[in-house]
Amino acid sequence: MSTPPSERARVKRYNHIADYDPATIHAILDAMPLCHVGYVFNGSPFVTPTLQWRDGDCIFWHGSAASRMLESAECQDVCVTVSIYDGLVMARSAYNYNINHRSVMIFGKPEKLSDEEKAVQLRNMVNKTIPGQWERLRPVKPQELKATTVLSMKITEASAKLRSGQPDDDEDADFPVWTGVIPVRHEIGAPIPNPKNVPGVEFPEDGHKFKIG
């Protein structure tokens, strides 16, 4: 476990599973594109799920230019979380039930990208799901870029928590109930073609590189 970057990023509960190493944090962000953005709108707290992607030491997310989440988050304090559920940990007592997981929490003030930067990062977003897919798509239209906002936030205040292995319930070792772990995995299914596809257009070979988790 490395040193926390700030007091608010320091893990207080279960700090023995905390990790502040950038490589660990980046790996979790890269493994799970779904994030939740916590922000304040009109004095009330909201948490919005959205797609995130990483480029270097920044994370990005996008949405409609009319999005209240993006408007409320710009240049304001937000908290972005990413979580991966790896398994159910079945212990001998409800108190010791747990989950194996990898998670990241990031604090910061996101900034809006310019139109030029926005186009670059939207390309990164698409190509991080399936390599080279942006180049296969119909070129983006100027009005589409105008209708889209992309926020960027430095990964400077972040912490990860990682839990793996069996339950911690040695004090109940003699109690006769099954204990162990039920692994949880994200399954990538076979592609389902759109019946309106242009005849003869095949699924891209790079599409098989798509993965989560």
Rank of each mutant, 00 (worst) to 15 (best):
S2K: 07
S6V: 10
E7F: 15
R13A: 02
Y14G: 00
N15P: 06
N15E: 09
H16C: 07
H16Q: 06
I17Y: 01
D19Y: 05
T24M: 05
A27Y: 11
V40G: 01
N42A: 13
F46P: 01
T48I: 12
P49Q: 02
D57T: 13
C58V: 10
I59R: 06
F60N: 01
M69Q: 14
M69D: 09
S72Q: 05
A73H: 06
A73F: 04
E74D: 08
D77F: 08
V78L: 12
V78A: 03
V80K: 08
S83C: 11
A91M: 07
R92D: 01
N96V: 00
P110M: 08
L113A: 15
D115K: 14
D115G: 06
E116T: 14
E117W: 15
M125K: 10
P131K: 08
W134A: 15
R138Y: 01
R138N: 08
V140G: 03
K161P: 04
L162Y: 07
R163N: 07
G165Y: 02
Q166Y: 07
D169E: 02
P176F: 14
V181A: 02
I188R: 10
G189N: 03
P195M: 13
V198D: 02
P199I: 13
P199V: 09
G200C: 07
P204Y: 11
P204I: 13
P204S: 08
P204D: 06
D206V: 11
F210S: 00
K211P: 03
I212N: 08
